[in-house]
Design a protein around this nucleic acid. Structure first.
Length: 834
RNA sequence: GGGCGAAUAGCUCAGCUGGUUAGAGCACCUGCCUUACACGCAGGGGGUCACAGGUUCGAGUCCUGUUUCGCCCA
């Protein structure tokens, strides 16, 4: 059989993707009797464009799925879409040019559903073109009824366990999105602003405070100085008058007031920052709210009502200046907290919100995180640091529309919380009546449905539950649950990028610990980011559009792209460059060409006929055995890069450049070799090429499948390389002596090649006598290779010159050294061309 | 200010538990159309492994400090 001259990924890749899908090769339970390996795939938010960073991350983890499948596992690798929540809402508002509040809840939710469905189709098509070995029949979306049901079930369980609570409290608030948010939704941003020194009055005395938020003057409830600050010691306990607004506020002492900052005197407003909240709580201060939910001044800010924050600030500063109360102003750049979804500076609002109590169990969460094997391991530290630094319970209510509703009603007379019945789930309390007619506590019959929806992370933190169908009739908990040293875990692996350790990883651990008292996964594979050449992170919100992944896959092929993704170490960021795509492409071509040659020479290979393994064959098999060991150990701990490196080196260097060159004449069936010797070479070639294809298959699934299907599939009796068994070299291939003599032989070849290269002649140039100077001991190891050394050198004869290294060079002319100590080589070139 | 990571050839990256002369690809130089591959092959040049100390028989690898960059958090 003759393979076509060239391999064309443009036609081959879609062909194989279709083949895999039609054959259902990646279906969970295709081999139900095998042990399960389950993967908690990240459901991407459909609100963002797919960028090359996604491809980087997904490929790095998907190759591991392919590896375990070949290792004989029943791999569960689903796909999901995170389509509920604020990100999707913002997408719809942007694309359709509407505001949720104008359209109405029902209509808006409908628009969200429609648009996200469209995007999901696009996403699936794209991910198939990358060659992900996903079982598409297992896909889910975080807004689908089952996800909503599981999410609500999880909430009800947390409520019953006393973990979910509601209360009226100052909460992080986004005035743009008009909703409460959680600590994890905050992003720091460097912003330019102005520091104003504003004079308060105490009698005739000026008390100057520095502030960047003069618009919060109407919300000022106190002034603070450090207790040791002598400048203000006598003022503590007195009252100062707030400029413009004229109300009096107490002057108090607290250690959190920094004497070094500004004048050392600071105003406390309800609420400017978290310190204000602490002071407000600890000192029992009054509450003066001057901002409404949309970031406009309210009636408390007399004269400025209805103005948006920035505008109010400008006007108040003007009025202060006019009154001569601004003593100084200077421009500064400082870090502010913004909402990561929209970039708006966050405010604080006092409102009724739902929370998950986590601050009291930080240690438990940290301990659970420590039981997960993080790859790379330092990612666990990031998880721990985040949990240690938590300041808020997890705020899970959002004053939005598109998301999972709280399965909750409240008694209108006594505020008793009424939970939905399991049979009602999923439930929208605004359209469904509560499961009771009268309040079990007070007998009241009026109920108020909860209008808020849950934080989108409340559902995405359930992904292990969605995968195991937690609490559902078709629950897989029993099947998926495994334990390791007494630690029970729900799934085998969580793949994700490091930027969402604080959200997705953290919340998932919280849920698994609280709902199930288990850790969510045995391992977590944390991948890095792709950076622009100017080192900025490529992400969905920034720099989208450049390096379109669709274009890259089309131009460079999925295999080359996957090779690129596997060329940097797990967890580390990489600067985008086409260099490694090109390396991947060359690897594909080389695999094709080498296979073309091999298959031509293997066509008549009869594995059952007697064969004799020559020294080069034993050397190759020994090198192969070492390579399989390393590749397997690497893949087992998620080190795709180490595995690929080992296999590529073996293939290119050992198999192609050396073995094939050395064994060529034997493979051609040239004179001087009998059939058994030829079959020895064929055997080594067959085994190692097949093994290489298998080990490369996780990274480059298309080219390997193409080659495998053209020759190996029929002989091996397995229709696809991706469900073939991972190579397992027999013990006898681990042959130390063969390795040693092989290396010596290569040293001879290197010397011979150097002679030809120095003389600027072709490597095919005939040689008279090839002389090998070596000790008797070394020669014993080399001499079994004389036939092949003669072939590869195109020499008439090979002679041994006894030389123990006791003289500078052996007797005779033209000897060159080699990398192998103790061997020198000379060769008489027959047709020296000038 | 705290935490984590990175710093290796002109560029993009490897380098596993410390062990001869630090690797790959691109780029560069010299050759070679060799019955798989010129998208190739052979040979070569190029690195004081950020800097300064330390541990060790031995350090790119471990420890301490410094500098620069990135990420996360205050």
């Amino acid at each position: 059989m003759k393979l076509p001259k060239r391999y064309d990924p443009k036609t081959a890749e879609p062909k194989w993707q279709q083949f895999w899908e039609e054959k259902g090769l990646f279906h969970f339970d295709r081999v139900p009797d095998r042990p399960i390996y389950s993967i908690d795939t990240p459901p991407p938010t459909v609100s963002g464009r797919i960028h090359i960073g996604h491809v980087f991350s997904y490929v790095q983890t998907e190759v591991i799925a392919r590896f375990w499948r070949m290792m004989g596992f029943n791999v569960y690798y689903p796909f999901g879409y995170d389509d509920n929540g604020l990100p999707s809402e913002r997408l719809v508002e942007k694309e359709k040019g509407v505001k949720a509040s104008d359209v109405g809840r029902e209509k808006f939710v409908q628009m969200c559903l429609e648009l996200t469905k469209e995007y999901e189709k696009e996403f699936s098509t794209f991910w198939k073109s990358v060659g992900l070995s996903v079982d598409w029949s297992q896909d889910y979306s975080t807004i689908d009824p089952r996800s909503q049901r599981i999410s609500q079930r999880s909430f009800i369980d947390l409520y019953r366990k006393g973990r979910a609570y509601t209360r009226e409290a100052p909460t992080l608030w986004c005035p743009e999105c008009h909703t409460a948010i959680a600590q994890a939704d905050i992003e720091d941003a460097e912003r330019d602003t102005v520091f104003y020194d504003v004079a308060f009055k105490l009698g005739d005395r000026d008390l100057v405070v520095s502030t960047t938020r003069p618009e919060l003057l109407p919300a000022c409830v106190a002034m603070f100085a450090h207790p040791d600050d002598e400048r203000y010691a006598e003022l503590i306990g007195k009252k100062a008058t707030v400029p413009i607004f004229g109300h009096d506020v107490p002057i108090l002492a607290d250690e959190k007031a920094d004497p070094e900052k500004g004048t050392g005197l600071v105003m406390c407003c309800t609420f400017g920052d978290t310190t204000d909240i602490t002071w407000w709580q600890e000192h029992g201060l009054e509450t003066r709210i001057a901002l409404d939910d949309n970031g406009h001044m309210n009636e408390l800010a007399t004269g400025y009502e209805g103005l948006y924050i920035k505008k109010a600030r400008k006007r108040i500063v003007e009025d202060l200046e006019e009154a001569g109360l601004v003593r100084n102003e200077r421009s500064i750049s400082h870090a502010v907290n913004t909402h990561e979804r929209c970039g708006t500076e966050i405010e604080f609002a006092v409102a009724h919100q739902w929370f998950i109590r986590v601050l009291d169990i930080k240690d438990e969460i940290i301990a659970a995180g420590a039981k997960v094997a993080w790859y790379p391991d330092y990612m666990e530290v990031r998880f721990r640091n985040w949990v240690e630094n938590l300041k808020w319970d997890w705020c899970i209510s959002r004053q939005r529309y598109y998301g999972v509703p709280f399965p909750v009603w409240t008694c209108s007379s006594c505020s008793e919380v009424i939970l939905a019945d399991e049979s009602q789930l999923p439930v929208d309390p605004t359209v469904t009546a509560p499961p009771v007619d009268v309040c079990p506590k007070c007998g009241g019959s009026e109920f108020e449905p909860e209008h808020d929806i849950m934080d989108t992370w409340m559902t995405s933190s359930c992904t292990p539950f969605l995968n195991i169908r937690w609490g559902e009739e078709d629950s897989r908990l029993e099947r998926f649950l495994k334990s390791d040293n007494g630690t029970e875990y729900l799934m085998d692996m969580r793949p994700q990028a490091h930027d969402i350790i604080r959200t997705w990883a953290f919340y998932t651990v919280v849920k698994s610990v609280l709902n199930e008292e288990k850790i969510p996964w045995r391992t977590a594979m944390i991948s890095g980011h792709v950076l622009h050449p100017d080192r900025a992170k490529i992400s969905k919100s920034k720099n989208a559009g450049s390096h379109s992944p669709t274009a890259i896959i089309e131009e460079r092929s999925a295999d080359a792209t996957r090779y690129w993704a596997c060329s940097s170490r797990l967890g580390t960021d990489t600067v985008f460059s086409y260099d490694l795509f090109d390396a991947g492409k060359r690897f594909v071509v080389k695999l094709w060409n080498a296979s073309k040659f091999a298959i031509m020479r293997l066509e008549d290979f009869d594995a059952d006929a007697p064969r004799e393994l020559g020294a080069p064959d034993r050397w190759l098999l020994a090198r192969f055995a070492v390579t399989v060991d390393r590749a397997t150990r690497s893949f087992e701990v998620g080190d795709y890069n180490g595995a690929l490196d080992a296999v590529e080196r073996f293939f290119w260097h050992d198999l192609c450049d050396n073995f094939i060159e050395i064994a060529k004449k034997r493979l051609y069936g040239d004179e001087g070799y009998d059939d058994a010797a030829r079959r020895g070479a064929q055997y080594a070639l067959y085994q190692t090429l097949l093994g290489v294809l298998k080990m490369v298959a996780p990274v480059m699934p298309h080219i390997t499948e193409e080659i495998y299907s053209l020759f190996f599939a029929e002989r091996e009796g397995v229709e696809s390389i991706h469900i073939a068994a991972w190579p397992e070299p027999p013990q006898e291939w681990h042959d130390k002596a063969a390795l040693e003599s092989g290396e010596l032989g290569l040293a001879v070849i290197e010397g011979m090649r150097k002679i030809k290269s120095t003389n600027k002649v072709s490597v095919a140039t005939p040689v008279g006598v090839l002389r090998i100077a070596a000790s008797q001991e070394l020669w014993e190891k080399i001499k079994q290779l004389t036939g092949e050394l003669r072939d590869v050198s195109n020499a008439e004869a090979v002679e041994h010159v006894l030389w123990n290294g006791d003289t500078e060079s052996p007797p005779g002319d033209g000897f060159v050294g080699t990398d192998e100590a103790g061997i020198m080589v000379s060769a008489e070139l027959k047709e020296v061309q000038s």
